[in-house]
Nucleic acid binder design. Sequence first.
DNA 1: TCACAACGGTGAAACGTTTCATGAAAATTG
DNA 2: CAATTTTCATGAAACGTTTCACCGTTGTGA
Lengths: 338, 338
Amino acid sequence: MKQNRTVARMKDVAEEAGVSLGTVSKVINGKPVGEEYVRKVNEAIRKLNYHVNSYAQGLKASRTYTVAVLMPNTYHPFYAMLTYWLNASLTRRGYRMLLCCTDSDPRQEQEYVYMAQQNKVDGIIGLTYNDQLQVSEDTPFVSIDRPFNPQIPCVASDNFAGGQMAAEKLADLGCRKVLFLRTGSSLNNEPNKRKAGFENGCIARGLSYEMKILSDGEWLTEEDIEEQFRAFLASRIHDGKPDFDGIFCVTDSLAFIVRRMLEEMGLRVPEDVQLIGFDGTRWLAHMESSGYMCSTIVQPIESIAEMSVDLLLENSMSIKPPLVCLPVTFAEGGTTRQ
Amino acid sequence: MKQNRTVARMKDVAEEAGVSLGTVSKVINGKPVGEEYVRKVNEAIRKLNYHVNSYAQGLKASRTYTVAVLMPNTYHPFYAMLTYWLNASLTRRGYRMLLCCTDSDPRQEQEYVYMAQQNKVDGIIGLTYNDQLQVSEDTPFVSIDRPFNPQIPCVASDNFAGGQMAAEKLADLGCRKVLFLRTGSSLNNEPNKRKAGFENGCIARGLSYEMKILSDGEWLTEEDIEEQFRAFLASRIHDGKPDFDGIFCVTDSLAFIVRRMLEEMGLRVPEDVQLIGFDGTRWLAHMESSGYMCSTIVQPIESIAEMSVDLLLENSMSIKPPLVCLPVTFAEGGTTRQ
DNA sequence: TCACAACGGTGAAACGTTTCATGAAAATTG
DNA sequence: CAATTTTCATGAAACGTTTCACCGTTGTGA
């Protein structure tokens, strides 16, 4: 027993089992091998506590069974859930997830894409807000929420339909004058279609509407944002009476803040003002029974994850659709009348 | 230009630059090389768009600069923040993070640990609730919140001090009779010390206290949990007057639910009952200005992450401490009187 | 001018797999 | 029973790096 090595190699297994290297490889990869050999090899593997070295494997096969996921962060509820479901989908297909939090920093985003070219990963699924991102043609890439070019599939919720749905819901619930509040990127991304959808819905239903959109050109702190929306809302309230009766916020977290503002201003939600957000991530998701934090348009996060992974790994697909929109639903969360 | 390869190898760079393989390697790894050679090699690298193949590198060096992080999920606010800061610490040190969501499933947890032995990662940082987890001696491992054995460092908040702090705070704020509410694991883990600390603090300050601890032996749904706590609270309220004036909940999410219950029962928070949770993750963390969801004992998540990474990667440390407790703080969040 | 050290480029060997051409043995066919 | 096909173990080559012994060049000192 002069076993000086720290870990056993395939060669050691072969010697222990008294078979050749190729045979061990076949047993491990499930290729046809005689029954007797399989037994001997498996016995040797167990005895030596052998594990394949995936770097040698990766070198040979240039497949790593690892996918890089680019995410701005993990603590925003939407990103957190998306990360969770991406991991689930990838794991189910035998892939690992290399998670890269970019803080939406273009430099980091670019660096992670370069990494993929170093064969560290088999592909990339990215939620980025980088206009300049250079994606090499031969690196499989799927984008979430943000279209790049026809070669790169983009997966998103049907944001337009979601905006429409919000308008229709508010109309159904008896609203006459509604507001749309939004912060965010002026980049060409899918969530921006929420506005167009909402506008479309309002027009179709004869709802009068007004939009307050904070430009992201100027650099705004969260305090600035709150202040600007507060001022806007205040300017639409005369003698304690609002000239609006419904609000559609571009995200749930904005809706949550707006709800607090309205209550501070003496308005009741949903009695005086009905409020709809967008995302539908339960912030107490770990407590299944706790509902949504506000009425909301729910993104099918699990489907988005599943579809992204499908598009990335399924190379049997002859053509890759440039844009896949998945259906959203409305969920009651206490900020709209039932 | 008969370049049939998809990606350039070091050999191609060497040929292009008219130098040897070893020289290219040296240039890339910053070993001393003549100025003229460095220039030529870098030029060739740029021209061929060369990137090192990290699988070949990993095979040779048996270092992968990748660390596996085992996390029950990414959507619980505490796990989400921890994941975010772990990624930040690892990135700063030039490491990548392979994120493994285990759903607290012992089988998955074990599988990921095996993976580490396949040289896929240089080490593991794990937040697990698995009593049986087999961790090989020669795989660097750091545990968060859960002690294994003296060989494996465990990093956690000072949960005992946190419990104590909660008791003292409630005492300072004038409470006479307080409750401790807890669900969770009966496993030997650090967060369990919150109870002991709280008890200790109550005794020290002469606070009368009562504990309601839901056993996890029986399988409880979230609905069951809510119902049991609701019944318990109701039994301590007589004619609309509670026989308690303070509550310490083992987590913020429980505190959040309890707050809603109390309000439904006609009690005002914090006027009638003061409420303290544990964790201190801002659920609207992406909105910096929005405060805590309840008054809480704040875990130093960033420090926990940093310390875990330090312990994992710093092999200059002669002895690894078996347990590192990091200081917690109290934060006001509207559920305690100021 | 010679001996010797210091510098640094070279190229082969090695890392642990997978794959493939080879050929021996077993199974099938006429 | 011979001829043919099928099955399947074998071992060498290859994947793209890093490392290291080797050695030519240049610089130094007596």
